[in-house]
Structure formats: structure tokens, C-alpha cells
């Protein structure tokens, strides 16, 4: 539910990074925060526990600048991955314009990925959204680790509709911008 404000000529789009706990969502936002020009982004807000696990969400606004007279901005959010924080996760999905699913490629996290993907479908459905109709991309993260599942296998389990997917190493930034660019463009297209 992007908001188009004709009075102040602003467009704000909400992109949510979803996925199992410790998959690398927060790391994606930190990388973006550190790499985009400082004058184009706001503060990175993290509601985290003392141990730096996301408690409620991370939030990063990024400014695309003025396009055809509209100040255009992306609001990037992450959700907490832990199963028991579902209430928070659902709240963050409210009004979402685009979703990035950050999967943890490690073999032993496959079930956690699948569970989180189901949870995403369910939470969206409760708002009456259908993931197949929303701008959606997947990032297979942690490709630097030795014990990762092949992408084909991850696709098979997590990506039946074959939405765009990217291999990532969020800690070094591999795939982070490719992922963001892809979802951002899909969101913009959906406005046009």
C-alpha cells in the first residue's frame, strides 16, 4: 500500500525483508546503510535485544530523489525471524509493497526456511494479500559457507513460482544490491 501524496508530491514504498532468524536480513540492511550515499538515506533504526537479535524490526529509509516531480522513497524493514515473534512480523507486513525473502542456504536451515516461507504466505493472507501478486524476490544467502544446499534444491523447496532469485553473501555485500534493485524495480513497475 504505497502512499502517493499529491499535496506534498511524495511516494513512499514499503519493502520488507523476511526469512528465518539469523539468515542475514539485518546484515543486508547494514550493508545498504553503509554503501549508499549518506545523503540518500536516513538513520538505521534497530529495535533489537541486547544480544543484537532483531526484536521488533529494523528500519532504513532510502531516498530515490525526485522523479517526475515526486519525491520517491523506499522504506526498508526487516522482521524478527524467531518463531515466537510472529505478532511483530505480521505488523510489519501491513501495507507492504514488496518482499525480499532472505533464505539461509545452509543445509541444516532448510526446514527453517520452509517454515518461514509458509509463515510469510499465512501472514500475508491474513491481510488479504497474495504473495504471487506482490513484487517478490528471493536471496539465497550465506553462499560463502561450505555446507550450503545447491540453488536448484532451494528453488525446488522455496521458489515454485520461480520469482527472481539471487545468491548472496550479505556480510561482504555479494548480491545485496542486486536483490534490492530487483525488488525496487518490481515495486516501481507496480505503480505505473
Amino acid at each position: 500500500m504505497s502512499m502517493i501524496n499529491y499535496a506534498s508530491r511524495e511516494i513512499n514504498c514499503k519493502i520488507v525483508y523476511y526469512g528465518p532468524g539469523l539468515g542475514g536480513k539485518t546484515t543486508n540492511l547494514e550493508y545498504i546503510f553503509n554503501k549508499v550515499a549518506p545523503n540518500t538515506r536516513g538513520k538505521l533504526i534497530s529495535l533489537a535485544t541486547e544480544s543484537e537479535r532483531t526484536l521488533f524490526f529494523d528500519f532504513l529509509p532510502v531516498d530515490l530523489g525526485t522523479i517526475r516531480g515526486f519525491k520517491t522513497r523506499f522504506h526498508l524493514y526487516t522482521v524478527p525471524g524467531q518463531v515466537y515473534y510472529n505478532a511483530s512480523r505480521k505488523l510489519i507486513l501491513k501495507g507492504v509493497d514488496g518482499v525480499v525473502f532472505v533464505a539461509d542456504s545452509q543445509v541444516e536451515r532448510l526446514d527453517a526456511n520452509i517454515e518461514s516461507m509458509h509463515n510469510l504466505y499465512e501472514n500475508l493472507a491474513e491481510y488479504g494479500y497474495d504473495l504471487r501478486q506482490i513484487p517478490f524476490v528471493i536471496q539465497y544467502n550465506k553462499r560463502d559457507l561450505p555446507n550450503v544446499s545447491p540453488v536448484e534444491e532451494l528453488d525446488q523447496h522455496l521458489n515454485p513460482d520461480r520469482v527472481p532469485s539471487y545468491e548472496g553473501v550479505a556480510t561482504t555485500g555479494v548480491g545485496v544490491f542486486d536483490t534490492l534493485k530487483a525488488v525496487a524495480k518490481l515495486v516501481i513497475k507496480s505503480l505505473g
Partner: peptide, 15 residues
């Protein structure tokens, strides 16, 4: 915005 049931809303100078 999308057929996904997530309408954008907008308002103009009069609103």
C-alpha cells in the same frame, strides 16, 4: 496498486 489486494491510497491538495 496491485491486483494483490493492496491498494495504494492517495490524496490531493484539496484533501
Amino acid at each position: 496498486m496491485t491486483p494483490g489486494g493492496a491498494p495504494s491510497w492517495s490524496f490531493g491538495p484539496a484533501d
